[in-house]
Write a protein that binds this DNA or RNA. Structure first.
Length: 299
DNA sequence: CTAGGATCCTGTCAGC
DNA sequence: TGCTGACAGGATCCTA
């Protein structure tokens, strides 16, 4: 799942259920999914760093949760709260074959499910959370970043596709495959544009678009059990309600009516409007007298 | 340092 | 039916 808005949704929702609760027992069903020695204790805070969630315990230890592609956190107590990668697990009997870790609290159980096992829970000392490799390298979130900073980073990685650069969490944190596509669409930037060809103004637009698209998603309530099950009992992804290009290939662009296309950029499925997002490939540094330089190099 | 590709893992779907 | 390859809301590691 889980890009920044989904993780923030998990954080806010989970807080209502486990803040102040006492973790009494940790059951690890998949060794790969839990790093370190299990710890217990009362939950004093739940924080988020980019796409990583950190559950702080009273005893000085913290549990860092990264959901990666298919992670979900499902709490079962007096009622159920489920968020993360949307799937039938939201409403299934748990544990099941995709349950990797169970955190048993005094008032309920928190299931960490993860189909692909890319996600994990890692035990850290609370005082050392910021030293953890992923968190330490994390760039600012879009709303904390200045356009000039993003522009500089795009320049430094000028020969990569713009989308590839903004997906890098050490460049800007929070965007994943969906919101990267959505932000590029809103800003009118083709995903495969060389990062170095973006102007400061375009970088600024892209930054504003990233803020807007993620704020909107958080407001929409993110990916939870609540909006996974429709009123008529059918299943639906909340993203379909407001996404403009993601998974919309073949459908029409809301702005110009052109068919949305799907291509591959940096190995990821990429959706865009070929009319609203033009591919202008300006060389980063135009080579002067290429023929002459080539001749000189040979000799 | 950057850029590109492989890799971790399970499940689903299209095509033969 | 069964097989095969492609692909998936992420990030790291390896090579050039």
């Amino acid at each position: 799942m889980p890009e920044l808005p989904e993780v923030e949704t998990v954080r806010r929702g989970l807080k209502g259920f486990i803040l102040g609760a006492k973790l009494k027992r940790v059951e690890v069903l998949c060794e790969k999914s839990f790093i370190g020695e299990p710890v217990c204790g009362r939950v004093v805070d739940i924080r988020r760093f980019g796409k990583a969630l950190v559950i702080d315990l009273e005893n000085g230890f913290s549990l860092m949760v990264h959901l990666r592609m298919t992670g979900q956190l499902i709490y079962d107590g007096a009622e159920r709260y489920a968020a993360g990668h949307p799937s039938e697990n939201f409403v299934s009997e748990l544990p099941n074959g995709q349950t990797r870790v169970i955190l048993k609290f005094d008032k309920g159980e928190l299931f960490f499910n993860d189909q692909r096992k890319f996600g994990f829970i890692k035990v850290l000392k609370t005082a050392e959370v910021r030293k953890e490799a992923f968190i330490r390298k994390l760039a600012k979130e879009p709303w904390e970043m200045k356009a000039e900073e993003l522009y500089d980073k795009l320049q430094r990685r000028g020969r990569s596709a713009a989308k590839v650069v903004i997906l890098d969490q050490t460049v800007i944190s929070g965007l994943g495959n969906i919101y990267a596509d959505e932000a590029l669409y809103l800003a009118g930037v083709h995903p495969a544009r060389k990062a170095g060809s973006l102007s400061l103004e375009e970088a600024s637009d892209l930054l504003a678009a990233a803020c807007r698209v993620m704020e909107k998603s958080i407001e929409a309530g993110g990916s939870t059990m609540r909006n996974y099950v429709q009123a008529d009992g059918s299943r639906g992804n909340y993203l379909d309600l407001f996404v403009k290009v993601y998974h919309r290939e073949g459908q029409l662009c809301e702005k110009c009516g052109t068919e949305i296309e799907k291509i591959r950029v940096g190995g990821r499925g990429t959706h865009f409007c070929p009319k609203c997002q033009k591919l202008i490939s300006t060389p980063v540094k135009p080579v002067e007298n290429p023929v002459e330089n080539f001749e000189r190099k040979k000799s």
